Computed example of a mutant assay.
Amino acid sequence: MSHVLEKRYRRLLRAYPEDYRAEHGEELIGTLLEAARPGARRPSLRETLPLLAGGFTVRVRATRAAGVPGWADGLHLGALVVAVLTFAQLPVLPYFNHKVWTALGVVLMVALVRGWMRVAAPVAAFAAVWTSRPIVGGGFYVPVLDLGPLYGDLAPVAPYWVVAAASAVLAVRRTGAGRTSGQARWWGATMPARSPWWLLVPPAGWALQLTQVPMWEPVWGVSRAGVEVVALLLVLAATLAVRDGRWALAAAVYLVPGLVYLAENLLMTSARGFLYWSVLTVLVVASLVAARRVRARA
């Protein structure tokens, strides 16, 4: 039984980074075999941490898009995160509001998930221009069509412009997942597809609107801050573990609309607000610095 387990564990170990295998390979095999024996003691913390770190590294490596540079992958991921969270907060329910706008958002998110950046770019650009009409037109607006929300401030339109800019850059890439095979159409993928699980984020946000609990309630603010801090800590850990800056770039793209909001509401921001934005900014900057240092060593 131990011989079979050892062969299996050695096969799994090949998925770990080479430097990790060289340093911890035999120790990892021994720990796994020891834990698999009947009545075996639980591995110590010193034995468990390398195992968890190696597993985290392998999982993070598996999320990297193949065939594209890190900057493109990070930009794509950042645009997708901003898009799904922006549309998840759109006031759609309990009454079905913004029907056309919601459908437009679904098209945009599907295009981003599938990597159809030549579809996503014009849709995102239209969304950014439409939401900015009161700003571009000096506040003058004639309600010709009731497609979606209009904003007179920079903060609400910033996410749309971030997605539009990132999509435009990725749409004009000369190489991409859909072009290498020579079978790509004009609307085909210029980026590898993402997990379809991303498409469940907006419906989950809309479902929460059925609870009729105001989104400005303290519980929502604290919950969102906690999720953001944990996510950015994972970004920093992934950057250091895999020695790749794509997640740091995605985090920076995600943070841009928030910094625009902070700048526009600087005089009205409380001490807790400054602390919140400071923590997020420090974590993103730390990830970017870590990515730069890792790249310099390579």
Rank of each mutant, 00 (worst) to 15 (best):
L75W: 12
W130Y: 03
A125G: 08
G67E: 13
V84N: 06
L108Y: 11
T102Y: 01
V100L: 05
A79E: 09
L75G: 13
A164C: 12
V129K: 03
T131G: 01
G70R: 12
G137E: 03
R61L: 10
G67S: 15
L108N: 06
P94T: 03
V129F: 01
V60K: 11
V110P: 15
G105N: 12
M109Q: 08
V157D: 06
V129Q: 06
G78V: 14
R64C: 11
P159K: 14
V162S: 05
G138A: 03
L108C: 11
G74A: 14
R61Y: 03
V157S: 06
F56S: 05
L147W: 02
R59K: 10
Y141F: 15
R61V: 05
K99V: 13
T63I: 13
P122T: 09
F56P: 03
G78H: 13
L145C: 14
T57R: 04
G78Y: 14
L112T: 02
G70F: 04
V100I: 07
F126R: 06
G137K: 00
V123D: 09
W101N: 01
V106N: 12
V107F: 07
G74E: 09
L150Q: 04
A79K: 15
I135N: 09
V82I: 06
A164Q: 13
A103T: 01
F96K: 02
I135L: 14
D73N: 10
V119P: 03
G138E: 06
R64G: 13
G148P: 10
V162H: 02
V110F: 15
V107I: 12
L147N: 03
T131P: 00
P159V: 12
V58M: 13
A127K: 09
V136K: 09
V144L: 15
S132M: 10
F126W: 12
A83R: 05
P69S: 09
T102G: 04
V81K: 14
V92F: 02
W116I: 06
G148E: 05
H76G: 02
A128C: 08
P149H: 01
T102Q: 08
A79Y: 11
M117T: 13
